[in-house]
């Protein structure tokens, strides 16, 4: 792996992220860095804060305190202990560097597969349909769904929908891809095709942050694994060491249950 850890290659940096939902503190001070080309897997029991961490990165959730840098620019910074967000346009631009894939796919049901891919580049980047259509078609070929380009999402299987969702995110040419339990809503026999697409992305050195329950994916495709529990990062390391010899007892207990 050409995993150079130079300062300018830090794509994402979270510092002391704290977040509460009412009385419940879901993130208790998360520190996290992701470098260019790195595939980071975040695992942990449900309610550990792993999805919330991901959703704070692209502002689907707002944080209470701490700071987030995206490619060296502040999405939110800490001023006198309070979190201060960048102006809306700047914040939208920074969040736009990241593509997101959801557990529930969230395709636009009233648009065909191709229209799903073309919508944001046309609306947001003001590209013409003629410019974006070949790009979108290439992406659909890449995820193996070119033949379905004129179908509506409801006609596709869950696995196909999720591959379209990945292609839709890629159509915006993101620098970073975020995956929020991308296979959790799928039947077991459909997870393979989605994981294969994700492995191919990883092989192209896409920077990826993947919240997942798929231990095999974390072990084989990730460069680094983070284990979260109760709003904290309990342990992290390279997958070989992490899965073979976890240090913390909570990690050991969790992995024992998963395997």
């Amino acid at each position: 792996m050409e995993n150079m850890m130079h300062e300018h290659d830090v794509m994402l940096r979270m510092r002391q992220i704290k977040k509460r939902f009412g009385p419940l503190e879901v993130l208790k001070g998360i520190d996290l860095e992701v470098c260019r080309g790195e595939v980071l897997a975040i695992i942990g029991p449900s309610g550990s804060g792993k999805s919330t961490t991901l959703r704070c990165l692209n502002r689907l959730e707002t944080i209470d305190s701490g700071s987030i840098e995206i490619e060296g620019q502040f999405l939110v910074k800490s001023e006198n202990g309070a979190a201060v967000y960048a102006a809306p346009a700047e914040s939208r631009r920074l969040v736009g560097c990241m593509g997101m894939v959801f557990q529930q796919f969230n395709l636009f049901p009233h648009m065909t597969v191709l229209e799903n891919l073309m919508e944001a580049p046309i609306q947001v980047k003001k590209m013409t349909p003629a410019e974006i259509q070949p790009v979108a078609e290439d992406l659909l070929k890449k995820v193996g769904l070119y033949e379905k380009r004129h179908a509506y999402p409801s006609r596709l299987s869950g696995g196909q929908q999720q591959r379209v969702a990945i292609a839709r995110a890629l159509a915006m040419k993101p620098d970073i891809m975020l995956f929020d339990e991308p296979t959790s809503a799928l039947d077991p026999e459909l997870t393979g095709e989605v994981l294969k697409t994700m492995r191919e992305l990883a092989a192209e050195h896409m920077t990826m942050v993947v919240v997942t329950h798929e231990m095999a994916f974390a072990r084989e495709a990730a460069n680094r694994v983070i284990f979260m529990a109760d709003g904290n990062i309990v342990e992290q390391g390279d997958p070989q060491t992490f899965f073979r010899a976890p240090k913390e007892s909570r990690t050991q207990a969790f992995l024992k249950n998963m395997l």
Partner: peptide, 11 residues
Amino acid sequence: GQYEAAKTLGM
């Protein structure tokens, strides 16, 4: 999820 998808696409 529809709002979230649109938002993460920059809309």
